[in-house]
Structure formats: C-alpha cells, structure tokens
Design a binder for these strands. Structure first.
Lengths: 305, 305
DNA sequence: CAAAATGCATATCTATTGGATATGGATCGA
DNA sequence: TCGATCCATATCCAATAGATATGCATTTTG
C-alpha cells in the first residue's frame, strides 16, 4: 500500500538526485530509503529513478509521479490547515437568527460586523423570526444561535445568555399633545391608560408583547389594544398614521421615523426589553465559539464602560 | 506523521458514520481503527468526529478535512496511473528528427500518424535538419530518435537501425529530350555524365550528396555539379527551371512538381537512398519504446508484403 | 594503474507501531 | 432493568520501518 511516506521520500530523492544525501536530509539511513523507493517502484510497477554511477535521476514516469506527489503533499498540508482553521472557528458557516426588534440593535450589528472582520472565511447566514420560532430553530439545529427577547421560559437543552436590558420608549404621533411637552420628562405608564395601543406580535410564541401587557396590568390598568402588527416597523407606521401609540425598544428609535415622537417611561414602569443569546447546550462548534467569544467580550466591555 | 492510511480510514468512517462498520469494511478490527482515528485527530489538533451513542458523525472540521482527503486519495491513484502510463509509453513526449528527404517518405509519415492514433497522450515534437546535425542532436539527448539517410559512419553510443532502401530517381525538366522517350525505360548513370547536376547539401555532415558523387565515380565519370541547394524542395524547383537535372529519392516524386519529369535508373547504378532510425544506445524510454515498436512492426510488414 | 572514494544494493537485526483480542463503560431500546 | 449496541482502553503479537554492516560497481586520484 502506497503511503505518504513513499511520496515524501520520492520527492526528496528527486530533489537531491541522490539517495544517500536525501536520506541524510530525511533523518534516516541510506539503505531503508533505497528499500522504500524500491517498494514504491514495485507498487507502481514502473521504475521512477535511473540509477546512475554518481546518483540517481528521474525517469519520465518518475517525473510524472513526483510532480503530482509534490502537489499531493501540499494538499495534505492544506487539508490539515483547513481542519484546524475550521476547528478554531476561522472557517465554516454560522446561521444566526434574531427577532425583528433585535436586528437593529447596535450590539447585534456590531457583533456581526466584527465577525465579518475577524473571521472573513466564515459564511454567515441570517434569519429573522419571532423569539418563539427562533428558539425552535435553535433546538432543531437549523440555527446555531439567535438573538432573542425576553428569555422568559427556560428551555431544556438550550443555554440562554442574558446580554443587556434595553429601555423601552413610548412612540406617539408627533402631533400628539404629549409630544409637544418636554420630551425629556419621563412619564408613567398609567398616564397612557386611555391611549389606544398598537402592538407588535408574531403569530407564534412569546415576546415583548406579553411583557408590555404585564407591565400595564402592574401599573393598574388594562391596555386597549387597538391594533396588532406583524412587523415591528409597521407598528411605527401605524403610530405615525395616528392610529395610536406604541411601546418599542430604544434601538427602534434609530430608524427613520418621520411623524413619530418618542417619550421616555418612568423607571417605575419596570419595562425593559432584554436582549439574550440562545444556543444549544453543550460545547460550541468552532464558528459558534468564535461568535460567543466576540459576544461575551462585548458584554464585558459594556459593563466596564 | 500523517499517512494515507489515516485519510483512508477517516473517509471510511465518515462514509459509514460508524467505526465498527467501517473497520469491517476496511478489513481490520474496531479498536485499531479507533486508535488511528484518534491519532489523526491528535496530529491535526482538532476533533474530526463527534462520538454519538449510536455511531459517530463528522464535525465541521472533520467535514473540511474528509472532503479534501477524498480528493487527495483520488489524486494519488491518478499519480500512480500517470506514472504507469508514462512508463508504458502511452504518455509523455517524444522529440523526433528527420532529414528533409525523409520527411515526405510514406514510411515516416505513416509511423507518425500511427503514433498519434495509438498514443494520443504523447506530445510529439519534430525537427528537420541534416543527417549530421540529427545524429549530433540524438547524441546530446535533444532528440529521442531521428530518421536519417546513409548511416555510413557507425557512431559509438548510437544504435542505428536500417529500415529500408529507397530507389532514387533522376529528376529532369519535362521539356528535356529524355523525358519525351519512354519514361518506363531505365537509363544508366553514365548516360547522364554530361548533364549539369543540381544537388542538395546541408552545410554540415554527410548525406545523400556523398552517395551520389560516389555512385557517379563508380559509373566512370565525375559529375558536373552545377548548383547546390540547401533545401531538397528547392532542388526540384531548379530542375523545373531548366538549370539541370537531379537525383532524388523516390518519395520526393510525390511532391507536386510541375515541370519536372522522373526517370528510373538502371539497377546497376547501385544508387539507393537508405532510410535508418538513429537513437541512443541502451534501454529505450517508454515513449521511445512505443515508437520503436511501431517502426519495427512496419518494417516487418513491409518485408512480408 | 592501483588505491581510495563514492554511492547504491543486499543482508541481518532491532525497535516501532499497526493491528488483534479481551474487556470496560455509556447509551438506548425492550 | 436487562440486554444490545458501540466506542474506548488495555494488553499482546506481528509486520515492517529503520539501523548497522558489508558488498559491488564506477569513478576519481595520487
């Protein structure tokens, strides 16, 4: 059976044109090298070297073989390197999901940008869905990780890492009486008891929706849900159209939203939009490990700052 | 040190998704296979397989490696095959030379055509030169073989194989008085004693030139050499222009030669153009062996016919 | 021209290691 | 819970890669 050893030896002998010298270079003695070369020639069934009085030289068949052997040896090194890089998470692919409200958060976009820079050989794929759908996708290994909101339910088999809590803002039409007043003043949730509320809710699973309803109840009223939108951005359009007000994560205020004004909520409302990363329990793959590294470093930096 | 064995094993395990089953397929037991896989993983420095309760499955790094390993194993087979084919003379290159007078001989063109058909993977290269130059090129290994005329000098280190003797014809302008008579009748060399002779001679080395002069002397006269041309074809042009007559190998008569008529010579003239193959002494390379095989078969066929 | 040197091949021995057998331990299905 | 499945570990054996010693052919050198 031909082994890489035979290729390495044949290449060395071809380069030296000399068995004894090649043996020295390979760190073995001359006789074993002679034997291995002969064994290779026998396996191939053709002489690769012409034995000259002052050394050896390649036959035409030898040249054909050695030229290819060189490439093969290089390919083996490349294969090993590829495996190492893949293992270290510098190469491969990573499927990431996020809820629409997380997609615009600077933390998430920052992580993504850093991934692109630090590991350009990783092919990233993104998916937007509701928290519930994302959790399901992660469980089913369709996603490697997902940025989700309100990790309320602790799911078996998943690791959910809390990243940060984001303030929530009240979005009101800009002609709304409250938008006229000092927008820096915080208002209480209760002050919005009579306003028609527009909420974002995906067909499936939990999300910010429930947190908002719960917070209103805690503030002593039951919100009047005027509309439900399936995309977060449409929520804001409806607000701009004057159909009601809404409560959205702070990062949403970054979107171009003419016709919408944002009001800060009283801290007592206790309404925050948590951002968390969900992934399968167990050791992370190389590419996922790479992502986790970046995420945890940024969480730490954030805490320090 | 990573060996092809490791690649073969990794590919087998990846394909079966099962160490025990793969071991059976490889004709070894399960424990050594487990060991070899582990050794490979250690050498690479990354796990290639995830041990599952019901078998094993590739990690991302494993997939990256095994995909390449498959190609490498195929390349090794291809390298072996290429060496075998080259050795058998089905592949490689062959530099062949011939004198201008041999280039048109049907024997030579026939051999070349057969080479192309039988061993299309051999890259043929041709060179035209005088017999002397060709002999030199063969000695210096710039040519693998050469079709030459008059192997008069036995050169040390070369094997010169006589292939056939070709009749020589007298080329005369078609308005020449002799061309009017019965062209099938043979004439004697002596009858041409008074004709101005146009001969072909390369700057270097012996050739047909000397044979012709010698034959004339044997016929009892010294030829009047009117012109010397450096290309055989120009010789015929000069004949057509009426500058004199010439003596050329029969195969030259195949060229389109308006204005030239050919006369057969008396056998007593003993003027023949021998065709021989010159090559280095010693065992022939694969590609050259291929040529020699075709040549010798055709010589034999010719003798039989 | 003889002697030394060079360089591959052969012969024999040793040490490494690939592979076999036996067994343990974890997980899964009945 | 018991047996089946399947990988890992431990130990042993056998094949073979490689070491040492030597032979043989050719070439260089004094």
């Amino acid at each position: 059976m031909i082994e890489l050893r035979h290729l390495r030896y044949a290449v060395a002998v071809a380069e030296e044109g000399h068995i004894t010298r090649a043996a020295a270079g390979l760190g073995i003695q001359q006789p074993p090298l002679s034997q291995q070369i002969r064994a290779l020639e026998t396996a191939i069934g053709a002489p690769l070297f012409r034995r000259q009085p002052r050394g050896v030289e390649l036959t035409a068949a030898g040249r054909a073989f050695v030229d290819r052997a060189r490439l093969i040896l290089r390919d083996v090194d490349l294969a090993v390197e590829a495996a190492r890089r893949t293992s270290r998470g510098e190469e491969g692919q990573l499927a990431i999901g996020f809820t629409s409200s997380a997609a615009f958060h600077p933390f998430v976009t920052g992580v993504m940008r850093e991934m692109r820079e630090r590991a350009p050989a990783i092919t990233l794929s993104f998916e937007e869905a509701s928290t519930g759908e994302l959790i399901e996708a992660v469980e089913a290994d369709r996603l490697d990780a997902a940025f989700v909101r309100s990790p309320s339910e602790r799911l078996e088999g998943l690791t959910i890492t809390h990243l940060l809590d984001e303030e929530m803002l009240v979005a009101v039409p800009d002609h709304h009486p409250r938008a006229r007043k000092d927008t820096r003043r915080r208002i209480s949730l209760a002050a919005l008891a009579d306003e028609p509320l527009i909420l974002y809710r995906r067909p499936t699973g939990p999300g910010l929706y429930d947190s908002i309803i719960a917070a209103c109840r805690a503030a002593g009223f039951s919100p009047k849900v005027a509309q439900e939108a399936t995309r977060m951005v449409s929520t804001l359009s409806l607000v701009a159209a004057g159909l009601g007000i809404s409560i959205v994560p702070e990062s949403m205020a970054r979107l171009e939203t003419t016709g919408v004004a944002y009001l800060r909520l009283d801290r007592a409302a206790g309404l925050v939009a948590p951002l968390a990363l969900a992934r399968k329990k167990g050791p992370a793959s190389g590419t996922l490990g790479r992502l986790l590294g970046i995420v945890s470093r940024r969480v730490k930096d954030r805490a320090g700052a």
